[in-house]
Design a protein around this nucleic acid. Structure first.
Lengths: 240, 240
DNA sequence: TATGGTTGTCTAGATTAATAGACATTTTGG
DNA sequence: CCAAAATGTCTATTAATCTAGACAACCATA
């Protein structure tokens, strides 16, 4: 059932198992998780251990416990992130989560590498600005991203983002009112050490990496980004 | 660096980080892991905690500690499992591990579902035999598989496997001397609860699932199997 | 051979995780 | 309104994990 002394706390193993059951629809009949005492018996642990697991799931926004009634399942599915020509991070997740946040981790000006120059249509070595972002929904890390912009065209992008907290609004403040997704490439791989920490993933977790280029309405690239999603928290839907 | 109170023991987080460094080739210059005291300082933990991490890696056969010298890296790469027309589990892993084992977890006779009947070229509902196997290398779970065989053609397959410990030899004992891989489909997904336990994976780990059909030299399907590999321990090489 | 650097082992203590039990509080339904 | 069933809270205890320090054993090499 659950294993001891493998370096993963019992409550964590149980939380992962319950999360899986929720997403498998095992509790769809009632919309409630089984009572704590039942889960405790099922997993062969103390009720307090189950409570720790449920508390962590409540923290993720998956369940809500109500005294006297039971533990309701409040979100079953993964966050669905639609990818289309008009992909916007905050719009896309929209009403799927209460609390959306994009935090600026780091930024710097740097010469464009070959890869970046190709993507943005710049000369290799041209100045570009890098933004490292961490996006969270309901206080839980959903994705971390690295974006590149032409430093010539968007010199204030970092400052704008720091105050506005959104790429779309930062573009608007830079005089770019609209933009579209020009291309997206998607791969899946294991999270590296940095991503494990940023997204608070379990060891061995998967990230889905989307390499995207956004362009203005004239088709000129304005943003090249590599976004790494926590694969167990999101579902990407490609809209054509 | 490493995080506390997330339900994953420090030594486990550190072991995972070091394993990643090894497979990334970070220590290729010397072929040795950094000294325990250096690692301890690097991760901000006590030397004993690092020792627990290294002990677990030694248990996996990745490193070997030698008193006075240091900790040598004894296996860098993932187990490479070649997939070709003549795929054989034990042959494929061959000299990459000292100790190969395939254990029969369960077996049963059952009517073929639509999926199984299609794969094996049987009528739906025809009797078939299911074998659940767990394969290990150096005492560490590498894959678990579910295989289906025609009960009419291979009535003794389970008994043969139980004594012979190999599908190839079980086929031989049933009068089938040679067979080839007819088709293979590969997907990656999160391990389910059962796989987590069988393969002793971390919560959230990936499995690579290979759905394969083996056929005799006349092209008649003889085995339909779904093998789930621990994605962080193997690499599949498709040989065409 | 002596020295510095490394792993191995031991003891002790602090912190965190898990168990155990009792009882309060709230909701639901007869 | 009462009883059953569920979550919330509290205390106490045990087990596992991590820290701290000291020293032994071993290897390489100057």
């Amino acid at each position: 059932m659950v294993e001891r002394q493998i370096g993963v706390a019992l409550w964590r193993q149980i939380a992962d198992r319950i999360r899986l059951s929720i997403s498998n629809g095992d509790y769809d009949a009632t919309g409630m998780a089984p009572p704590e005492t039942v889960l405790a018996a099922q997993f062969g642990v103390n009720r307090h251990t189950v409570r720790s697991a449920l508390a962590s799931l409540a923290d993720e926004g998956l369940v809500t416990a109500v005294q006297g009634r039971g533990t309701m399942i409040t979100r079953k599915e993964r966050l669905n992130f639609p990818i289309s020509r008009r992909t916007r991070f905050s719009q896309g997740l929209g009403n799927q989560a209460r609390d959306l946040e994009a935090r600026l981790l780091d930024h710097a000006q740097m010469p464009a590498t070959r890869e970046i120059a190709d993507a943005l249509g710049l000369a290799p070595g041209a100045p570009c600005i890098r933004l490292d972002l961490l996006s969270s929904a309901d206080g839980r890390g959903v994705s971390c991203s690295t974006s590149y912009f032409s430093a010539e065209r968007f010199p204030q992008i970092a400052a704008h983002f720091a105050t506005l907290g959104s790429i779309t609004r930062s573009f608007a403040a830079s005089g770019l009112d609209d933009y579209v997704r020009a291309s997206t490439e998607i791969v899946a791989r294991h999270a590296d050490a940095n991503e494990l920490v940023l997204l608070k993933l379990s060891p061995g977790a998967i990230v889905i990496e989307a390499q995207a280029i956004n362009a203005d309405l004239q088709g000129r690239p304005v943003q090249y980004s590599r976004t790494r999603f926590a694969a167990d928290r999101v579902k990407l839907t490609i809209e054509t």
